[in-house]
């Protein structure tokens, strides 16, 4: 895995590490560097046209801020570059997803971009597309069957979020973990990074059994699961934090903590959904950390990579789009830096 990591562009990597580990003052300085580098890279380069190209965009679902934003950004970028998008959304139904991939492959587009999805479900079909000589690209799906995967650096997101959590709880205490989507690669990486970090903090314990977040009804389900576990651990301090690999379970968990008056517990999640960042901004909310990704930039970058590839340029195996850990102290700067405001 480390080779893949290192083969990506090293945009502001050191800066990012520093930025997300420290809070406040260092962050602003580091971000200035980060944005200088991405900004100039984008300005310098001419994106090849997609004129006359049919680009298939296959989304697993668009019910979540991240998916919807990345999906729409892809469609817009294909149009902007003069191509014709064939965009389909499986509404988080795996049977639909496989059918749509099958039909897309039969339509023989000039390229296929898969947005998210359970690896074991989509991978056989990405392989079939590859075998049919269709260039396959992915967003947040790590597979040898795709030419390029555009994603946030989920190793970094995972370890940074875990370090933030461990540091917030003083390196000791019980944490509740949602681990329902280990089959989705980015979620698996973030979870593995959490485990890797807490391995060195033996006093941090994950409460067993781990919880399973679900789709649909994620918020309601997380709310009721957390309410149940709070009843099982009624003493203040018996649970220090709640972690989830994305931020819709975090939303439900945070609401449950507020409803039960257990706001001493902190919640952590990933994606930067606007409603969760709003909670992080609220000084009284238990939402303590959120790894804000840039779904719009991710979608746009994936399509630009398609255009570059079709124009004969060489692509790295993975393209990382910066993400930052937002916490109570740096929330204003993060939203400003990532232009999420």
């Amino acid at each position: 895995m480390s080779e893949i990591r290192d083969s990506g562009p090293a945009i502001g990597r050191r800066n990012l590490l520093k930025a997300s580990l420290a809070a406040g003052a260092t962050l602003a300085a580091a971000n200035a560097g980060l944005f200088a580098s991405t900004g100039s890279a984008a300005a310098d380069e001419e994106i090849p046209s997609l004129k006359g190209k049919r680009i298939a965009i296959s989304a697993t679902g668009t019910d979540h801020h991240f998916d919807l934003t990345a999906y729409n950004a892809q469609i817009d970028e294909v149009k902007k570059l003069g191509g014709e998008p064939i965009a389909v959304d499986a509404q988080r139904n795996d049977t639909k997803l496989v059918s749509q991939l099958q039909t897309l492959i039969a339509q023989r587009p000039d390229a296929l971009v898969q947005l998210l999805g359970t690896l074991t479900v989509v991978d056989p079909w990405l392989k079939r597309a590859k075998d049919a000589k269709i260039p396959v690209f992915t967003i947040d799906v790590g597979t040898p069957n795709s030419l390029n995967n555009t994603t946030s650096d989920n190793w970094r997101i995972g370890s940074d979020l875990a370090l933030q959590l461990v540091s917030d709880i003083g390196g000791a205490g019980n944490i509740v973990v949602f681990n329902g989507f280990y089959g989705v690669v980015p979620c698996a990486i973030r979870y593995d990074q959490l485990k890797a970090v807490i391995k060195y903090y033996p006093e941090v314990k994950i409460i067993e059994p781990e919880l399973r977040d679900v789709i649909p009804n994620t918020v309601q389900d997380a709310f009721s699961q957390i309410t149940a576990i709070l009843n099982k651990y009624p003493e203040k301090g018996s649970i220090k934090a709640i972690w989830s690999a994305w931020d819709i379970p975090q939303l439900g968990a945070t609401q449950a903590l507020v409803a039960a008056g257990r706001t001493e517990i902190s919640t952590y999640g990933v994606d930067g959904s606007p409603e969760v960042l709003q909670l992080v901004r609220d000084p009284n909310s238990p939402a303590a950390g959120n790894a804000a990704q840039q779904p719009e930039e991710i979608g746009r970058t994936a399509i630009r990579n398609v255009a570059r590839y079709l124009a004969g340029q060489k692509l790295p195996r993975e393209t990382y789009v910066p993400a930052l850990i937002a916490n109570k102290k740096n929330i204003d700067e993060v939203t400003k830096t990532l232009r999420l405001g």
């Binding site: 139904n93 795996d94 479900v121």
Partner: peptide, 16 residues
């Protein structure tokens, strides 16, 4: 048939 189609068993069968 569904296991063959989806290369495994997945959640959400109830939606059918």
């Amino acid at each position: 048939l569904s296991v063959s189609y989806l290369s495994g068993s997945t959640t959400g069968a109830g939606e059918m």
